[in-house]
Design a protein around this nucleic acid. Structure first.
Lengths: 329, 329
DNA sequence: CTGAAAGCGCTTACAG
DNA sequence: CTGAAAGCGCTTACAG
């Protein structure tokens, strides 16, 4: 059996009390510089590190932050997770990864995380109910939402300006003379899907236009190929297909290519997010940049602020988007 | 301040001892079914869940498994992480995500995780030294490697058959009459890069051929575009470019398209991994399937086995690969 | 600045 | 089957 070196061992070896060892490892504790140095040196040679689990028990912070994301193999989620993990590590937090699989219950997932005494949670998947938010608050673990906003719930959130993004894209298409535009939505009951579709409709209405058709995929490239194909085969003489995210747009590009339909000459295709792959391949995507890094940093800032001052006012950060003009529209 | 409900609260409310509460939550503990039911019911209404942090302190398992991966935004890593996270959750483990950023030290990263009393670690990034392996063993946290093998180190590992994969690809190219083949390698000092390049060289030698040229990227699509472009511009009359992974191969496809070079007519391009995106885009990739799901499951199996019987013999699992024939070669 | 003591929330022998 | 007690490794008032 491996021997765990404890603060007691270090205390004995250094000829001090156990409390001293603890203080040596606590920045800002009152210890003489000399003693701290000595204790730290002894700890070093013994290979001692404070047991963070034990520390968490004394009511201290554990440093654990629950991170709930959707399917990691999707470009946007992977990209966001990377920035989130990086930002958390950089701030001394440790991400406890909670992947949401189909039909998983956010409540159960978060409950489990709460049992680990996470200091807080960042949720970028699933639909968050008031109930879930309340439960987290009750446990003293602040919740920060990404890509979804829970109205009147006093829950901090950061979300990109979906409506603005869609207006930028619609304006471009209309300026190109496109009038017969279809919408390929994402998974039903998804916050971003709803905001984006609403944005498209409002932007079109602004030009006294309406959607010619609409279909729904599941945000995956594959569903883009399938549903995009259906839209193209419907004989609607579409001149534009707007998608709820890049992955589906890339799928529609594929579907068009399979049918020998020229993009953007015959039909324009737009995405959303500007994931790394959007710039490459058959037809670089005209899309809207969803600033992932900025989003991750904002989420962390909100979490930190809430941890520092639990009573502060709820804040919803809307990060800005940019139109990215490429070949597909 | 939020009130934490403890086992004591439940004990009082249920009229039993604290030990009873603990037993009620311990499968297989000796409690009368009646009592357990009662305690569980009371716990339920009070909203009690055992504090896993406290449980971890008593020497129990924490259920935490450190998962070290490289850049998550890369398709293969994301894909692997997804399967890993899924497998771990399904087995009641909780992944503690430890992303390896450039020039991070695996030792430090794992040390930090060890301070959280992780039950074990799965490492799929960085180069693992004997030192790191020993340190983990000393802490009683078994280490399982993915995609790398540490010779004579008594470290369990699961890795795909890189050599076999490369032989499959080389044989195909040679059968197509290709003779002037270049190699685009990945990041230096990477286990899979080394095994794959060695595999290519041996397979070529088998046909009494040798590499016409070689260059090195960093496994990213971008580096594939850059270095692939260089290879194509070198005036070497190449008829095949083999890449250490799919992302770079996709980049080379791009570079060829930019130059109006026909794939596979003028030059064949091969990848490795068969990531989700390999089947789509400008030119579907001929590649080798790296069975990610099987890999994740095998890693978990090794971890479980080691946790059960610490003394068992070291095991290195080589998962099989399959040739995936598509348009690019 | 430093040490002895109490306590964080749980589990596990030890008696019964 | 059940309870009282000790202990996991740490931190934090409390004295000095």
């Amino acid at each position: 059996m491996p021997v765990r070196i404890t603060a007691d061992d270090v205390a004995k070896a250094a000829g001090v009390s156990r409390a001293m060892v603890s203080r040596a490892f606590t920045p800002g504790a009152s210890v003489s510089a000399k003693k701290r140095e000595h204790v730290l040196a002894v700890a070093q040679t013994l290979g001692y590190r404070p047991n963070l689990i034990a520390r968490g028990l004394t009511g201290q912070r554990t440093g654990l932050i629950a991170v709930v994301v959707g399917e990691i193999s999707r470009p946007y989620e992977a990209w966001l997770l990377e920035h989130l993990a990086q930002a958390l590590s950089a701030h001394g937090y440790q991400p406890l990864l909670l992947p949401m699989f189909k039909d998983a219950s956010l409540t159960e997932i978060l409950d489990h995380a709460l049992a680990y005494q996470v200091d807080g949670a960042i949720v970028a998947a699933g639909s968050v109910s008031r109930e879930v938010a309340d439960r987290c608050r009750a446990s003293g673990a602040p919740l920060v939402l990404i890509g979804r906003v829970l109205e009147k719930s006093e829950t901090d959130a950061v979300c990109c300006d979906n409506s603005k993004g869609m207006h930028l894209l619609v304006d471009r298409l209309v300026r190109q003379g496109r009038r017969r535009i279809a919408w390929l939505g994402g998974t039903l009951d998804t916050f971003s899907d709803q905001e984006r579709q609403l944005g498209v409709e409002q932007a079109l209405a602004h030009h006294e236009l309406a959607l010619t058709a609409q279909l729904r995929g599941d945000f995956s490239l594959h569903s883009g190929v399938e549903e995009g194909g259906r839209l193209l085969d419907a004989g609607l003489a579409l001149d534009g297909i707007m998608c709820a995210n890049d992955a589906m747009a890339l799928g529609v590009v594929e579907a068009a290519a399979q049918r020998g339909i020229k993009v953007p000459d015959e039909v324009a295709i737009t995405g959303f997010d500007d994931v790394p792959g959007a710039a490459w391949g058959r037809c670089p995507l005209t899309t809207v940049r969803n600033p992932v890094r900025e989003t991750a940093l904002a989420a962390l800032r909100l979490l930190d602020a809430r941890l520092q001052t639990p009573g502060r006012a709820t804040q919803v950060v809307r990060v800005g988007v940019t139109l990215i003009e490429r070949a597909s529209a």
